[in-house]
Write a protein that binds this DNA or RNA. Structure first.
Length: 482
DNA sequence: GGTGCCGGGTT
DNA sequence: AACCCGGCACC
């Protein structure tokens, strides 16, 4: 539901609606620097015999065209028209040479080409270019209406989900050809919309970097998760195209001694699921998202802010290395998971934890960050370092950066978490679960009653307002620590 | 019974 | 997160 509601704003549709979109506004072209109303296109007429737009533009072998060669316009004959690259192989009759020209640089009428390489507009007297730009204003009102409808349909489909794009990425090459070869009409492939056709006008509307996408997907043919990249492109309409190119997102498997890198979430999840977690139906059914814990998202070319686990090359900035086991609730479920009622409430943490403990990387050496439930109960997050210390994994809570610190003499409760860890990992075959958790007496060492005077004794019950907050709340005294 | 404080509920 | 309180263990 979120994507639907948000996508409206951030999707290309939203961007197109919010900006001047030649596609949508094209038929209503305000004129401006372009032709005044009524005088459209070149003198040959908008739909004249030589009018060539991108969709209708197929240059046949033998067709006479004009290109710029050595600063002069030369006539040539089309030998081949490569729609994918949008290049035309031309044989220049006057010079007897073969040249390769972009479709944009080919004219079909013998006029002097403009001095500028690619001016944004076409003057009425200019030669008819086989341009990649749309000539929407020159269309008939009927086709305009039709195009508006179709464009709306296409944009609607575009705005649905990035997955739509990714699912149709197999059409990337052909879609590119379609886009390159014709924007005036909509092909049945549909989703390759108008919005790529405004490139010539430098519109702020987002145009997907098709070539990059192609090369990217070709570079990683085994990846089916182009969704992230596409999502980035689709959602980041303000960012220049460079940015998409400069920050490459990849995903690294954090399973010990693996470190496999994939460029898609789907791919890395599949890798983790199949190679590390196994494919049991139980996994599929109940712990489908467990793979999330074993990969890290990597933005390359960005300064490193977090140190990944040792053994993993450090290039990541956002690390989703999350342990969702009991450390998130160290003082309750972590210690007293066998307490009455502990197994009853089926929150997600408890649902995941047994499986995690079963399938978690059985790395010898393990830093476990323990957070106290209340800030006044423990001085700070404490890492319990469980021997042996050839640590290779660092499990933290999602929101906190690792703060390596040796195990300080902390309160008994916190230590018991480490003891629990030791107990669990000394018997690795035993899965941790609420039903099989050890007897409470093993784990719950009630806090030793402090010998120091507490607020109640110092100030008395009548001066309760002078107590520390913890004492007022019947918590462990914060002021007079033992 | 008084005290300390854990665990959990409420706001 | 702050606040509150039932209840348990210890003295």
């Amino acid at each position: 539901m979120l994507p639907k509601t948000r996508l409206g704003k951030r999707s290309p549709l939203g961007a197109l609606m919010g900006t001047s979109c030649p596609t949508m506004e094209g038929p209503l072209e305000t004129g401006g620097h372009r032709d005044p109303p009524g005088i459209v296109g070149n003198p040959m007429g908008p739909l004249g015999p030589q009018h060539l737009n991108r969709f209708g533009n197929k240059l046949h072998p033998g067709q006479k065209v004009y290109v710029l060669c050595g600063g002069r316009e030369s006539m040539g004959v089309v030998e081949q028209h490569n729609h994918v690259d949008n290049e035309v192989s031309i044989r220049l009759q006057a010079l007897g040479q073969h040249v390769l020209r972009k479709l944009e640089d080919v004219w079909t009428s013998p006029t002097t080409p403009p001095p500028a390489a690619h001016p944004p507009t076409q003057d009425p007297g200019r030669p008819q270019r086989v341009s990649s730009c749309i000539d929407v204003p020159r269309r008939s009102p009927e086709s305009v209406d039709m195009d508006e409808m179709m464009a709306a349909l296409v944009l609607t489909s575009l705005s649905c989900s990035p997955q739509v794009q990714s699912s149709s990425k197999t059409d990337a090459v052909s879609g590119c050809a379609v886009m390159e070869s014709g924007c005036g009409e909509l092909s049945d492939s549909g989703s390759s919309g108008y919005w790529s056709c405004d490139r010539g006008y430098g519109s702020p509307a987002p145009s997907p970097p098709i070539p990059e996408t192609d090369s990217h997907s070709l570079a990683t043919p085994s990846d089916e998760g182009l969704d992230m990249e596409l999502e980035q492109v689709l959602f980041d309409e303000q960012a220049p195209r460079k940015r998409w190119n400069s920050v490459k997102v990849s995903y690294r498997c954090l399973w010990p001694n693996c470190g496999k890198m994939l460029t898609s979430v789907v791919g890395i999840k599949r890798h983790i699921r199949t190679l590390h977690l196994g494919q049991s139906s139980e996994h599929e059914r109940c712990f489908r998202s467990e793979e999330d814990f074993y990969y890290t998202k990597i933005h390359q070319r960005e300064p490193q802010t977090l140190t990944p686990p040792p053994g993993v090359p450090a290039s990541s900035t956002t690390v989703s290395w999350i342990a969702c086991t009991s450390p998130t609730r160290p003082s309750s479920s972590g210690v007293e998971s066998g307490a009455p009622g502990a197994g009853a409430d089926g929150d997600s943490v408890k649902e995941v934890s047994p499986q995690l403990s079963k399938s978690a990387p059985s790395t010898p050496g393990f830093i476990w960050q323990v957070r106290s439930e209340h800030s006044y109960q423990a001085p700070a997050p404490v890492h319990l370092v469980a021997p042996p210390l050839s640590a290779s994994c660092c499990w933290t809570t999602p929101s906190s950066a690792p703060h390596p610190r040796h195990c300080a003499p902390v309160r008994v409760r916190s230590v018991s978490v480490g003891e629990q860890w030791l107990q669990q990992h000394s018997a690795p075959s035993r899965p941790q679960s609420a039903s099989t958790s050890p007897p409470r007496t093993l784990w719950t060492t009630r806090r030793v009653r402090g010998e120091a005077k507490k607020c109640r004794k110092v100030y008395g019950i009548e001066h309760r307002d002078q107590w520390c907050t913890a004492c007022r709340w019947k918590k462990a005294c914060q002021r007079f620590l033992d």
